[in-house]
Structures are given as C-alpha cells and as structure tokens.
Design a protein around this nucleic acid. Structure first.
Lengths: 335, 335
DNA sequence: GTTGGCACTCGGTAACATCGAGTGCCAGCC
DNA sequence: GGCTGGCACTCGATGTTACCGAGTGCCAAC
C-alpha cells in the first residue's frame, strides 16, 4: 500500500499526464495542489514509485509517465464516481428527453453521445436478443420454398432469419403457421424456445411451424453475429500517436463479435475500467476501456463503454458511462 | 491532347508513383518500359507536363508527383477495364458461390470483400428500399397505443417504422389492419404508396390502416437514415500519411447519408472514378473513389465503391468494383 | 525526515556540412 | 530539329557537433 504522500504524488502525476500527455517532472508535482514538499522530496518518492512499478521514465533525464499499474491505482482510488456536470450533463439530459423511435437508431445515437462527451469512441451493446421476450413472429414467404421469419421483440427490436422449406408451401399455410407461432411464443425468450408447439392438426402447417422453430432454435448460438454500435471511431485517429496502433484499434472495432465479447468479459470480471493488458487484448495495450452494464427488466443486460487511450480522463469517462447507462436503463424500462 | 511520348511518360510516372508512393525522377522513367529516350529528354517532357498541370514537384530537386489532372488522364486512357485475375478473381468467385442468407449480412460481407481485394475501404450501398417492391407488411403492437410496422421487401430486406395511435387499439384490429395492408400493398413500391386503401368497413381498423399508411408515406424522405456497409475502415489509417486526413476521412465514412449521396452523385455524373476534388468533398482532396452501380430488376439501383488514396491502383480497383458489381447484380437478380 | 545544492544525463533544437537524387539548360551530335 | 551527354545548381535528407535545459540522483546540512 502506498502512504498518503506517495499516493498524492502518484495521483498528481497521472492527473498531469492525462492533461498534458507529456512526461511529468518533480518540479511540476511539487507545485501541485495537495503536495506540500519540495521537488527533491518528490524526486525521492518518485524513484520509489518507479521501483514499485507505478511509474516509468521514457529516458533518464525525462519526467515520469504512469504505468498500467499506476493508472490502475489512480482509478481504484478515484473515490465516489463523480456525476456529470455542466454542458455534458445537459447534453445527456437533452438527448434522453428527445430520444424516441427505433431502438437501434437510438442506441446508435447513444454511442455517438458517449463519443461526444468523452472525446473518444463510444460503444453500445444492446441486450442479447436471445434473452428478450418475443412479442410476435411473422413468417413472410419470399419464394415457394423460402420464407423470412421476422421476430419482433418486446423492446421493439426486430430480427430476421431466413427459413428454407423442403417442399413448396402455400401462402395461407405460412400465414397460419405464423399466427400459430405468435400465439404460442409471445412472451417467450428465444433461448428458452420449446422443442415444439401444440400441433394445429393440419400436417403441412405443422411442418412449416416446426421448420421455422428449428431455425429459430438453431440461431441461438454464442458466436452469432452481434449488434454493436460504435460511435466516433474517427477519434481513434487522434488517440494514439503510432499509425500502426490506430490501425490495430480500428481493426478491433470492426470486429463486432470481438467488441461484444470484450465488453462482456470486462463487465463479468466486475470491472468498470480495463486498462491496457487488462482488456485481454494485445492490440489494446495502450488503450483503456470504461464500461457500464445496464439491465432492462431484470436479467437481460446490455453494456456501454468508452474506448480511448490509457491516458484518458477516467473521471469524466466513468461519470459519462455511469450516467448514460442509468438513463438508458430508465429509458428502456419505462419506454 | 498529349502526344504519344508525353502520354507514355505520364502513364509511367503515375504507375511508378502508385507503386512506390515516392516522387518519380526522370532516370527511373527513362529505364521504364515503353520509353526509349534518355533521361534528359524525359526531363524536358516532364517540364512540359508540369506546365500543363499533369505533374508537380514537391520541391525543386525532387522527382514528380501526379496531380489530380494527371491521375485523371491516367484513368481516362487506362483502356478496356481489365478483368480480375489470379487470387482475387478466385476470392470473388468463392465469395459469391458461398453467399446466401440475409441480404444485409451479405452486403456487409461484400464490402469487406472489396476491401480485402483492393487493400482499401469497401463501401456497399443497397438499392433504395423506397424503390423495392413490398412483399408484406406486419403491424406488431407493442403497447396499447404503439405498434411497429415491419416491412418485408421482395429482396428479403426488412425495415421497421414505429406507429403511434391516437387511441388504444385492440390487437385483433391491428392484425386485421396488418392483413389488409399486405393484401393491398404487396408488390407496390414505397415511393408509390397510394393515399389510402379500400376501406374494410370497420371504422377502427380503417383508422389504424390509415395511420400506418401515413407513417409509411412520411418515411419516404430524401434524408432518411440510409443503410451503407463500410468494410475495412481501418485501412484508412495506412492510406494517408497525415493523421489529420485519416481522421477526416474516417469522419466522412461515419456519416452514412454523406457516403450514400457521394456515391450516388458520382454515379449520376457517369463517372467510374472520382479523384480528389472530383468527389465534391474538400476532406477527400487526397482520396479517390472508384464506384460501380448495380441494378436489381430494372431501375432500383444500388452502388458499390472503393475509397482509397488518390495514388491507389486504379486498374485493380476498377476491375474489382466492376467484377463485384456484376456478380452482385446476378446474385441478387437470380436470388 | 526534509531540502537546497550540485553534478550529471540526455533528448531536443539549432547550426552547419555533406551527400546525392533530381533538375534545367546548353552545346554538340546524329 | 530533335535527342542526348554533360554540367552547374538546388535542396531535402542525413549526419555531426554544440548547446540548452528539464529533469534526475545523491548528499550534506538543516
């Protein structure tokens, strides 16, 4: 554990580095608020902090830069999450006051909101559709042997799966099957779909129903294509100085499944912030991720996050992510 | 017009610059295929080409770099579009052989395909849904006064619009309205929706029908949120050397409506390639766009494109875009 | 335990020389 | 007359050197 003075110095270094992106020298820290010792003392303490792995020097005659461990300490001792203030708080309020319409559009806009507030990239993962209650199912025939199963969920999201039939199917039968499915599966969650539904008595209708049900059951896969909304990806360009890193991070953001997994893992580990290697991804070594889960009607959880450089403003990002996730939760629950 | 030798030299300069991204000197050109004069002569010719605006020198003692006009000449005299060859041709074939399932997923994958072939960013704009025949309409009630109008199009794409009712509406009535709408509007194009449909006789059902129809008619707006699939955005990072440019281009790609408009404008002007300012966007000054339209069943046209630096391999990009658009057209038409 | 002082380090910047790729021009050659 | 070898010239890139100063570690003194 760090004594008070070391802690104060470390925090001051992180704070300063976040603001300036320049290695921080002992002089600057000695002047800083909350540190009332001379620069010589600060130097001694900094040397210890370096030995203990909280700081590093880019080169001998330079100031110090926080390590992952340093950022971690900073985040862990950041105290009660500050609420959003000023312009940003207003932005969030206004956003949710105006929010309406399609849920996907709204979540996409939310990712842009996060990006706008924090200056980095915003990510929004919707609750898994497999855990959202179904509202209705519509089979729309496209060709004699092909139909589209359109699932409408209670939260207003829509999903589709194409269904292939073995034999030509009449449209009336398809409609009958469609109504039958809705009648039996409304309110059910897709991961809890039954093996079969009560037969209608009409053989062909039942076959259509069964085929569609099979498709829907089969679509509950862990590696199914996942929705993610990424807002402000262009900010990545200014987040890292190495072009190579920019490209790698952008590449990560393009792989939606990876992003979803990443957020989930971090949330599952009970973290609000994952710094560098804590993300579990080598390519995010100089990045940090601030996340917050949100739940809608009990268990079905989505998450939101902000991806930026390790030297991001954690206070603000944590406040933003917390506030937005709460508002989002309310918005989707009261809906 | 340029005489043969000047043309050959210009073409060689462009070719070389595309490959090396370095200013091209007279020596290199004198050695190049198709140019059998000394470097001194090349220098004289290059000086003329510079006066004529085809080339520029970054500084006095450097080689030459093509201008927009230079690239334009190169593209205009590129001759018959080469077909894709080798590995790339195989990739495209394999892709369309395996392609199946949801149209959106497939178009998204197509954008990644384009990116993979050309090394730059691929863009796919689906045909406007307003011009695609409707297959069926499903009203799904979400709340007493709210429903979701789910439109299923003949090509298997799905779209939704939320509908608010003035008064509470029973589910049966909503279903009746839904069936009524499908019956009357199947095969119709959304931009050609009628003001009203034959009344059912039931006042409330008719009111629901009318409300839904109003929403659908209102949703035919030029600035409605548009689908675009952008694949390989991370390649932008390596396309331009100025971080600033990278950010600007990424920003453009985030604005889907802008991208759609951009592609449409270029196609409408009858161009296959838009270089720098030809795109009409200042932020794309050092970029180039290679596009191709594709049509499905007559008029409804989408387009695909590749966005890269002005010094991209136009031959390959044009071949890729042409080939993929043809294949895509076939794929969607034969379905 | 703290601190002022001091020698030391070393990246960054500037001044300067050098190198060489590339140029424009010109006289001579075919 | 057009092409070309030759040549003086330009100027970015690269390397050298010197210097500055921010920052350090250490130590003696308070």
């Amino acid at each position: 554990m760090l004594d008070d003075r070391k802690a104060a110095i470390l925090r001051a270094v992180v704070q300063e580095y976040i603001e300036t992106a320049q290695p921080v020298g002992s002089g600057r820290i000695a002047d800083a608020e909350g540190v009332d010792v001379s620069s010589a003392t600060v130097r001694n303490e900094m040397a210890t902090l370096e030995t203990d792995g909280y700081l590093v020097q880019p080169h001998t005659s330079a100031g110090r830069v926080p390590t992952e461990k340093g950022y971690r300490y900073f985040v862990d001792t950041i105290g009660a999450p500050r609420a959003l203030r000023g312009e940003h708080a207003r932005q969030v309020s206004a956003f949710f006051r105006r929010a309406h319409g399609e849920i996907e559009e709204m979540l996409e806009a939310t990712s842009r909101l996060l990006s706008g507030i924090t200056d980095w990239t915003g990510v929004v993962v919707p609750p898994p559709s497999t855990e959202t209650p179904l509202r209705s199912i519509h089979l729309a025939s496209l060709a004699p042997r092909q139909a589209l199963a359109v699932l409408v969920y209670a939260d207003g999201s829509v999903e589709k799966h194409s269904v292939e039939f073995d034999a030509d199917t009449g449209e009336e039968r398809v409609n009958a099957a469609s109504a039958h499915l809705t009648a039996h599966l409304s309110g059910v969650v897709r991961s809890g779909l039954p093996d079969s539904v009560t037969p209608t008595g009409d053989t062909e209708t039942d076959r259509i129903t069964a085929t569609a049900l099979d498709v829907l059951r089969a679509s509950v896969e862990p590696d199914a294509p996942s929705d993610v909304f990424v807002g402000g990806a262009s900010r990545v360009a200014s987040a890292f100085d190495a072009v190579e890193t920019v490209q790698e991070v952008l590449h990560v953001l393009e792989q939606h499944l990876v992003v979803v997994t990443l957020l989930r893992d971090v949330v599952d580990r009970g973290l609000q912030v994952a710094i560098g290697s804590e993300t579990g991804m080598e390519t995010l070594a100089s990045a940090a991720l601030v996340v917050a889960p949100y739940t809608v009607g009990g268990e079905r959880a989505g998450s939101i996050g902000v991806l930026g450089p390790a030297r991001m403003d954690y206070r603000e990002a944590m406040a933003a992510v917390t506030d937005v996730s709460n508002r989002l939760e309310n918005h989707l629950t009261e809906g």
